[in-house]
Amino acid sequence: MSDHGHGDKPFLAHHFEDEDHQFDSGKLGIWAFLVTEVLFFSGLFCAYAIYRSMHPDVFQYAAQALDTKLGAINTSVLILSSLTAAWAVRNAQLGQKKALCLNLAITIACAFGFMGIKYLEYSHKIHLGIIPGNSTEQYLDGAFGEPKAEQVAFVVPQEGEGEEQHAAGGEHADDAAHAEGGGQDHAHELAPWNDPAVDGIQKQNLAIFFAIYYCMTGLHGIHVLLGIVVLVWLLSRALRGHFTPTYYGPIDFAALYWHLVDLIWIYLFPLLYLIN
């Protein structure tokens, strides 16, 4: 870029009038990108809503295999990293180089912390045989431990009638919860997980929950990894003193991306970890 720069402004590309023009163009670009990201993730949220409204009992049961404490810690880690990312933008705007580098470094550290905890969660599940696409019953059986398997009762559908009862509820994601509450009133037979009356289909539905879990958290995790790459690049540039109060676009845009990644996790956490 510096070959085509405007003299004393090495990062002002030649096709922009001035720094404001460059900044505004970049800002519009990142928001357009974030829109595509929201729509990208919405497919998975839609799959989640459909399967949850079809099988509220399965979600309720399967969510027990997720560790709420680890999920909550990861939520806090991401929120902290969002604060430091927003703070870094402020530092860049005010030309505080040291604080900018420090805040970027903390953001990167939080991102690694998040992925570390995610690694613990994934490896625990893979150890139990819960891997994406695995619908083999015997693996899922052991995943919850014996006592939990007996505590949780499954609704056994009576001759194909059960699914329709649940299905009647859903016009909106909220209605999944109504179906959940209403489903119990219909006094289908309740059976423990290891009861032979609970059919294989029901157990395979558990694998669908974990497929959705892996897709949603996996895609989110890929975004975190990508964020780390971008933030490390920005930190190296910040250390070289590239950013000034008139040229801080890259910091602002990366922070916007990082906040969106945080925002998606804000929804994933209650949807996956906090199902009663």
Binding site: L39, E163, A173
Partner: peptide, 26 residues
């Protein structure tokens, strides 16, 4: 406008799919 517009379409996407499923799954 951009971001809330996209969220509106996400809402339409999910709610219409759920409505459809509620209507015809039976």
């Amino acid at each position: 406008l951009l971001i809330f517009g996209s969220l509106l379409f996400v809402f339409l996407f999910i709610s219409f799919t759920l409505m459809d499923r509620g209507q015809y799954q039976g």
